[in-house]
Design a protein around this nucleic acid. Structure first.
Length: 170
DNA sequence: ACGATGATGAAC
DNA sequence: TTCATCATCGTA
């Protein structure tokens, strides 16, 4: 039996960021005709989350996170690495999932470099016509294979640094 | 352990 | 306009 590849749309992403983050494990990032299984993500959850950029308010940079779900939030980190995030939840509530790993590439800065993803995708919707989207390719991921840990590189975020908002496929 | 490398946001 | 800070990574 053949399974259709389904593009994940805005409705898929219009849910609590922790829910979307876990469900993104095992889905596929599609760019330039190639698909890559997502193996590691982190959730950033709203203005109260001190590790979330939006906790410092609505600014030019964080604007996409306040927009509708299913759009990309891409920003430059440490002057060298592009971080790829997908906006989740209701419009007006700033939350996003950082794509930290795909099969064959570990690390958020390495995967964007390998796939040629940069700021050109910021604020664009994750649909076929933009050239960067997410698909369910019918792979079943047992939740037992998903490990939760604190997020990486956010030690400054007080109690929020310890929350298990990182999801990794074993 | 540290430097590369530049945008960001807050302070001044 | 300056300044500290950074959701990282390669090299040592």
């Amino acid at each position: 039996m053949h399974t259709m590849n389904t593009m994940l749309d805005a409705a898929f992403f219009r849910h609590p960021v922790l829910t979307v983050a876990e469900e993104l494990i095992g889905k596929h990032l599609v760019v330039r005709g190639a698909s890559h299984m997502i193996t590691e993500v982190e959730a950033y959850d709203g203005p109260q989350d001190l590790a979330c950029h939006a906790s410092r308010g609505r600014t030019k940079r964080t604007e996409p996170m306040f927009g509708p779900s299913g759009h990309w939030y891409v920003y430059l980190c440490y002057g060298m690495y592009w971080m790829l995030n997908i906006v989740t939840g209701e419009e007006g509530y700033p939350a996003a999932v950082l794509i930290r790993g795909i099969r064959g590439h570990c690390g958020p800065g390495k995967l964007t470099r390998a796939l040629g993803i940069n700021g050109q995708f910021n604020a664009l919707p994750a649909i076929r016509s933009t050239g960067l989207w997410v698909e369910d390719r019918g792979e079943r991921i047992d939740v037992e294979r998903i490990r939760r840990t604190p997020r990486i590189g956010v030690a400054y975020a007080g109690e929020w640094a310890a929350k298990p908002y990182r999801f990794v496929l074993e």
